[in-house]
Design a protein around this nucleic acid. Structure first.
Lengths: 343, 343
DNA sequence: TTCCCCAACGGAAAGGCTTCCAACCGTTTC
DNA sequence: GAAACGGTTGGAAGCCTTTCCGTTGGGGAA
């Protein structure tokens, strides 16, 4: 059997309470006594039993992260920021990967009920009012990243602003017939980015006609929608193919709703024997790792920072459970690479 | 206060033992009784407290994964396999990201001592004899992925065989002056892959002269070695630059010890105004996600499968703690893309 | 009818910690 | 000199479950 606090107490000739105080550097212990206890601990090679501590303290030292599965691109940097910050607080991370949306709520329920973790981070997932309510009532803080809900803390990028800047960038390069390729229209980021695109066009006196805009749901291929709200390479490719076929306006630039869409579109363009940025300028959104390798101009989301901020914020909520809801919005920044050029 | 097993017992008018039996579908309970208990559970919205269960059962339902930080490429598919298989066993995953090698042993110690997890997976990390010993003695199963130790279970790819096949592929395309770019020589995969390269060359009557081989440590730049045992883009790029400068043999093909090295090398080649595969054929190792986007020919490691197998195996060890050490080796397979061509 | 056996059940104990309360003792205060 | 006080300390209670052991009661065997 492993060595317990009782063994330490016996060896140090003190009570178990004193051992506990020595470990948790409580002020209620004489320095000499503490030294004796610490010595005994070292001698026995004692380490507190994390589970037992968790039970007694009613807190686990664990944060849960629920993230979608299908795309690694987006989450690596985010995870880095999270882990880095978490280690500062001596917290561990349990990772829940969501492969089908149906399981999302299972995980939310589990984190609420099993009390295995002290708080929850979700990523790129809509939270229903029902769950928002449940979490508000519970003692488990929830923070959602890359989505919003007015009753819950969240951190996300300003999608509309970013899309506006991306489109503006194309316009400033002289492009007038600018198409947009988008993920599923039902997803909030899709809608917000569309609004930014539309606003930029309108402010420059350009009109957005239906044939300039293709979203994942217009492709009549339910399979393509499945993955990641339509933010996937196949959608980008199919949408671009359609643009290539149908275009009567002389489109010269494309704003893709995400890098992965842009990458799919680039594939279609190249397969059609056309070149980038000579025939088409294209700009993405996210700045995933692939983007730099493929020299894609894009709007960068500061993911590492978002990861850090998410953890900092949830730690704050551990301290102050009553802290009012806070919604943080960060501005994406333009990263110019080789896929955009003057008309 | 949350609802406990005592509340359920009271409502169902049974003892707490009976409630426990109902939850854990023990055979020692009458079906009718069970139904009553289950009904009470539903009525109260009771969920067992995972931490308390952990303490009582002396098992946590958590697996720890310790993985290096700096490279996302390699681990996403692995994680997918792990999570998929884990969910089958109703286990959760705690993720420890290692950013500096010094912290590696901290994590190993913690997993051993805090008893927060039932087993440990490590990735691409050498395990010292000291820790191998500690884990063997302890009740915490350890399985190492992508590295080997003769006293510990492990799963890895046949590096030598893969490197042999890669080199052979280049030879069969007619290349004779084939260089190799490698990670840090101290790392086991580097050495094994070198052996495969050397053997393939020798068996074809080609000689490996020192100027055909550049490893990360030859670059006299300690910074480059830091990251990932020298398996990083900068090393690939620097090594290739040097090959381009120094080459007197007329090198026509390069075997890179990993995809990320290959990608760095490709960058250097293109920056020198040369083209692939016209001037140089290049083959990598791993088949990370980037490889397909960059059309890199490479040796594929079945990472998803490795992730699944790792979990299956460690679950076996939970059942049978005395199960003898098992070392699994998988063969990588050639994926031909556009970076290799006949001489 | 009596006895035995076994399935089903109740609840104490155990798991290892934190925390709270009571006790203790050396000081300080009146 | 007695009383009040405050810094330390010991250890019981509590956190919530599982498990083990003793009990109960009904059915079958003698």
């Amino acid at each position: 059997m492993a060595v317990t606090i009782y063994d330490v107490a016996r060896v140090a000739k003190v009570g178990i309470g004193t051992v506990s105080r020595a470990i948790n550097n409580s002020p209620q212990i004489r320095p000499e006594t503490k030294k004796i206890v610490l010595h005994a601990i070292k001698e026995l090679g004692y380490t507190p039993h994390a589970i037992a501590q968790g039970l007694a303290r009613k807190k686990t030292g664990i944060l849960a992260a629920i993230m979608p599965f299908y795309t690694g691109h987006f989450y690596h940097e985010l995870l880095r920021g999270i882990m880095k910050t978490l280690s500062k607080y001596e917290y561990d991370l349990i990772l829940y990967y969501v492969d089908r949306l149906e399981v999302k709520n299972n995980f939310l329920n589990r984190t609420l009920q099993e009390r295995r973790c002290d708080g929850v981070l979700t990523f790129s997932m809509e939270i229903s009012d029902e769950y928002a309510e449940k979490f508000s009532k519970s003692k488990v803080p929830l923070l959602i990243v890359d989505r919003a809900h007015d009753k819950i803390d969240c951190i996300q990028v300003k999608n509309e602003e970013g899309a506006f800047a991306a489109t503006k960038h194309l316009i400033e390069l002289g492009h007038k017939n600018i198409a947009m390729i988008s993920g599923h229209k039902e997803s909030a980021p899709s809608r917000e980015r569309y609004r930014g695109y539309e606003r930029a066009m309108q402010e420059s006196g350009l009109t957005v006609t239906p044939d300039l805009f293709i979203s994942a749901d217009a492709l009549d291929n339910p399979d393509l929608l499945q993955q990641n709200d339509g933010f996937n390479e196949h959608v980008g490719e199919s949408a671009m193919k359609r643009l290539l076929q149908m275009d009567r306006k002389g489109i010269t630039a494309i704003f893709a709703g995400s890098d992965i869409l842009a990458i799919g579109a680039m594939k279609a363009i190249r397969e059609a024997g056309l070149s980038i940025p000579k025939d088409y300028s294209i700009i993405g959104f996210d700045d995933i790792e692939l983007a730099s390798y493929l020299s894609l101009t894009t709007m960068q989301q500061p993911m590492y920072e978002i990861g850090c901020m998410a953890v900092e914020r949830i730690m704050e909520k551990f301290e102050d459970k009553e802290s009012p809801v806070r919604q943080v919005q960060l501005s994406p920044t333009l990263v110019e690479r080789q896929t955009t050029a003057p008309l």
